[in-house]
Nucleic acid binder design. Structure first.
Lengths: 213, 213
DNA sequence: AATTTTTTGTGATAAAAATCACAATTAAAT
DNA sequence: ATTTAATTGTGATTTTTATCACAAAAAATT
């Protein structure tokens, strides 16, 4: 039998990590799977199985050691690995993401922003310079950047993507509500914020609608 | 047999909607499940089954009508229903979200921001006033607001949540990397951005690690 | 020392989700 | 009119994910 760290598991691990970070600050030494599960409204055996995948061992009748568990999640999820990225589209969202200091804790290192607006070029956001996209390919090679956070207006999403592809970008974290056409070698993660919001409100406010077949 | 619109399905529907919006603008009248599936890298029968849940019917040998399909997703996901919300924490991210005009298309209507910083109070962001949180409970009742977008610094996440709970807020869209303790009557959606990023990079850059048991 | 309680670890089971395979339909081509 | 090709619709199957149930371990209590 094969146990792998799937997307689902990773997602939960990031949430466990948030809990552990909190408990570490508050000085708690040990935490139980039941407490983690309770905070996330999931099954406690699920938590134990997830942790087991990372080869964490708890102490029966005690729980898991907060600090080592947190470290182990950070190792499994490569918090320590520096992931250089550009932000393309220095509008409100792009600029806010450039200033979002929490990314650093997760190894995401933003090096520069790009925007076609002549008024923005040369300006700095959080110490990071805004360049014209025609500088992107060159800078990506020189700085070894393979990740782009895309936050351009919808109408420019696809054409900007072409620029990114030509520049050798491999990973696009897409904050636009557009589905990008990319070759199979390029990975896209759609962070469709407004869509997520609907998911949230529908599932919880109006409850699940069911249909009989 | 019961077929329900689960979280998973809703998530895909929001993505289908992005595609349909694009094809509608481009003047395409009809679209096939295979094309949608291809753009999202999923199975085409999956698309058809999802659409069937909303009672959409395609025409064999033709496909689905773009406009009516888009409308039907909007109806199923309640795009038309106005969902009033406050943004609590008028920092970079909160302010950017206040300016993010895409939310309106999905029915999300932001009415005001809240922040404890005296220098920010009274200032307007995108026509929306910033108030002190001690005004929140009163305004929430008067404006019938049950949704809060939470974007305060991590250290204040939990105590701010208490304020929200006392103010009668029912839905918290949590942009902080903190797991909030709330009573069961309150729904939280964790939009753990940095965590999502890890999910993206790990699963796609280093591929899945597998363990033999 | 024995008992009780708590918590992990995990096999078995159930539930949910995704994929496969192909019949049915129908537009287009011959 | 017939054939071909494309596309939906859907039952069957497989795969994945989550839950259940309980044994094993060990700390705490008696």
């Amino acid at each position: 039998m094969k146990n792998s760290i799937t997307d689902r598991v990773i997602n939960r691990l990031t949430l466990y990590h948030c809990i552990l970070a909190d408990y570490e600050i508050r000085g708690t030494k040990v935490i139980s799977s039941a407490l983690i599960a309770d905070l996330l409204n999931i099954d406690d055996s699920q938590v134990r199985k997830d942790l087991k995948l990372l080869n964490n061992i708890g102490r029966r009748r005690v729980g898991y050691e907060v600090k080592s568990l947190k470290t182990s999640i950070e190792e499994a999820l490569d918090f320590g690995k520096i992931k250089n990225a550009f932000i393309v589209g220095a509008g409100n969202l792009g600029s806010a993401l450039a200033k979002y200091d929490n990314f650093k804790n997760y190894g995401l290192n933003i090096l520069a922003l790009f925007d076609t607006d002549p008024l923005k070029i040369g300006i700095k956001v959080n110490e990071l310079e805004i360049f014209h996209p025609n500088k992107l390919a060159d800078l990506a090679v020189r700085l070894k950047v393979e990740i782009v956070i895309l936050s351009v207006p919808n109408a420019y999403a696809q054409e900007t993507t072409s620029v990114l592809i030509n520049a050798g970008i491999k990973y696009i974290w897409n904050f636009t509500p557009c589905i990008l056409r990319v070759p199979a070698t390029i990975q896209v993660w759609n962070e469709n914020l407004a869509g997520n919001f609907l998911q949230f409100t529908i599932n919880h406010s109006t409850r699940l609608r069911s249909y009989e077949t």
